[in-house]
Amino acid sequence: MQLLHLTEDAQGVSHFKDVEIALNEGDFAPPAPVMPISDKEACKNLLYLVLPAGWGGAKHPSPRRQVAFCLSGWLRVEAGDGEVREFGAGAIWRMEDVSGSGHKTTVIGSEDVQLAIVQLE
């Protein structure tokens, strides 16, 4: 996964740089399967993760109160009450189901889903 980084040199001149976000196998929301995931960054937490094409997890609560930003791909999320929503690139949603039975997430189609997640207090 890549991002565009706007930075500045010692003279204060800004520059763009394409940066590869390092992803490693990680356990994001047990009992959902492991997936490629970035390290956390301070903001309270900002992290990037990939749900690979074909990935489908077990029903699980959100690991924290968080807001997700879909960068690419399509996914289906089924809430505990059975309501189903589909999200694609550009979708933003807040998850606060942290202590109940949670939700089930499934990647739709043949493209990986790339997400940016901001975790809240």
Score class of each variant (00 low, 15 high):
residue 1 M to A: 14
residue 1 M to F: 08
residue 1 M to Y: 08
residue 2 Q to M: 08
residue 3 L to V: 06
residue 6 L to I: 04
residue 6 L to G: 04
residue 6 L to P: 01
residue 14 S to H: 11
residue 14 S to E: 11
residue 15 H to I: 12
residue 16 F to G: 14
residue 17 K to H: 13
residue 17 K to M: 13
residue 18 D to E: 05
residue 22 A to E: 11
residue 22 A to C: 09
residue 23 L to Q: 00
residue 25 E to T: 04
residue 28 F to I: 03
residue 29 A to T: 07
residue 30 P to S: 09
residue 30 P to F: 15
residue 32 A to Q: 06
residue 32 A to M: 10
residue 32 A to N: 04
residue 33 P to Y: 10
residue 34 V to M: 12
residue 36 P to Y: 06
residue 36 P to A: 08
residue 38 S to T: 10
residue 39 D to G: 09
residue 39 D to R: 15
residue 40 K to Y: 10
residue 41 E to K: 10
residue 43 C to Y: 09
residue 45 N to W: 11
residue 46 L to G: 03
residue 47 L to D: 07
residue 48 Y to L: 05
residue 48 Y to K: 00
residue 50 V to C: 02
residue 51 L to G: 00
residue 51 L to S: 00
residue 53 A to I: 05
residue 53 A to V: 05
residue 53 A to M: 04
residue 54 G to C: 05
residue 57 G to I: 01
residue 58 A to D: 15
residue 59 K to V: 01
residue 60 H to W: 09
residue 62 S to L: 04
residue 64 R to G: 11
residue 65 R to S: 05
residue 67 V to A: 13
residue 68 A to E: 01
residue 70 C to Q: 04
residue 74 W to V: 10
residue 81 D to K: 06
residue 81 D to F: 15
residue 82 G to R: 09
residue 86 E to S: 06
residue 89 A to Q: 07
residue 90 G to N: 14
residue 90 G to M: 14
residue 92 I to H: 03
residue 98 V to K: 07
residue 98 V to H: 05
residue 101 S to V: 07
residue 102 G to N: 09
residue 103 H to F: 12
residue 103 H to G: 01
residue 105 T to C: 06
residue 107 V to N: 02
residue 109 G to I: 13
residue 109 G to R: 09
residue 115 L to D: 01
residue 119 Q to S: 12
residue 120 L to S: 03
